[in-house]
């Protein structure tokens, strides 16, 4: 039995519209937040969970963490049904919301951590050891006496992460943890998550819109759209499916005209060089390169895959999400 087992999960919300004039009752519409979603996640896996807004990602996380009760479907996490044994279940999980703070705003974070110790009933020795580990890894040592309200966004996120990991959860749910962070903080956060996953075997489910996070962290991605699971596998494979177009820019030393290109390529002037868009499926990169080289001395040539975000956008478009 895999660690997290989800089978045929369904959840419907009833949306009540505003009562229109002249109608006695409000109209109701049913929204299928999750539609027969199934997946398994093994212990210690690091899985990215993506999809456009409203696809049902947070509904899944809420069900997995025991906040919501689904209509139908089987869910077990480490042998427990989350919403049936909420208190026992949540002892083993940690959740970080990028836009929602669980620590107290006005008091030094150490006080918040101490209260969390009491809430989770963590034995004192364990707690001290774990706190030292986490403050070292997250570089929070000097900040323990600082109230949350005086911290920068990056510091706050690190504090939140520390708070969610104090009780050594087996699973960590992350909801947009890097939102709003600067590049340095993002990289540090990713390093930390990777380390936490490796050293403690923490299973991590990462929900995000930041494809860089996924690319850097998650060997496996699941894509959700309209409440259905659309893809489950490695990111590169997913990208190669939608990675139909590539861009190459070329600049010649002298005023060399662009050679005749096959029909499937599209070229446009870009400064004093050319930007060529092509599909590797139609013309292999090597062949294109060959044509370009034959025309004259190339001073500069860059080949770049399209930005990951663009690919995801293309994918959402294609799947009509």
């Amino acid at each position: 039995m895999p660690y997290i087992h989800v089978e045929q999960l369904n959840k419907t919300f009833v949306l009540r519209k505003r009562r229109e004039k002249g109608r006695l009752f409000r109209e109701k519409t049913l929204v299928h937040a999750l539609n027969d979603v199934s997946f398994d996640i093994g212990r210690g896996e690091l899985v990215g969970y993506i999809g456009p807004n409203g696809a049902g990602k947070s509904t899944t996380v809420k069900i997995l963490s025991g906040i919501l009760t689904p209509e139908s479907g089987d869910v077990t996490v480490g042998g427990m049904v989350p919403w049936k044994e909420r208190k026992n279940h949540v002892r083993r999980i940690g959740v970080v919301f990028g836009q929602r703070m669980q620590l107290w705003w006005d008091v030094p974070i150490l006080d918040s951590f101490n209260l969390l110790r009491d809430i989770y009933r963590i034995p004192e020795q364990d707690y001290q050891k774990r706190l030292r580990e986490l403050t070292d890894a997250l570089e929070l040592g000097d900040l323990l006496r600082t109230p949350l309200r005086l911290m920068s966004l990056g510091q706050r996120m690190r504090s939140e992460l520390c708070g969610s990991l104090l009780h050594r959860p087996e699973i960590l749910f992350l909801d947009e943890p890097t939102i709003g962070l600067d590049a340095v903080s993002k990289l540090a956060l990713r390093d930390f998550l990777r380390q936490e996953n490796r050293q403690n075997g923490t299973t991590i489910l990462l929900t995000t819109h930041d494809m860089e996070d996924i690319a850097a962290l998650c060997p496996r991605v699941m894509v959700l759209g309209h409440g259905k699971k659309l893809y489950d596998g490695a990111l590169p494979e997913l990208l190669s499916r939608y990675d139909t177009l590539r861009v190459m820019t070329v600049r010649y030393g002298m005023d060399t005209p662009l050679p005749e290109l096959p029909e499937c390529c599209r070229a446009e002037r870009d400064g004093d060089g050319y930007k060529i868009t092509y599909a590797p499926a139609e013309i292999p990169t090597a062949q294109l390169l060959h044509i370009l080289q034959a025309a004259g001395d190339i001073r500069e040539l860059t080949a770049q895959p399209q930005n990951v975000d663009h690919l995801i956008a293309a994918m959402y478009r294609e799947l009509d999400l």
């Binding site: 906040i67 949540v90 002892r91 959740v95 809430i119 989770y120 009933r121």
Partner: peptide
Amino acid sequence: KGTLDIFLLRPRG
């Protein structure tokens, strides 16, 4: 504010 969700995520009443 979603704070209730955070409470539900903790092993207490």
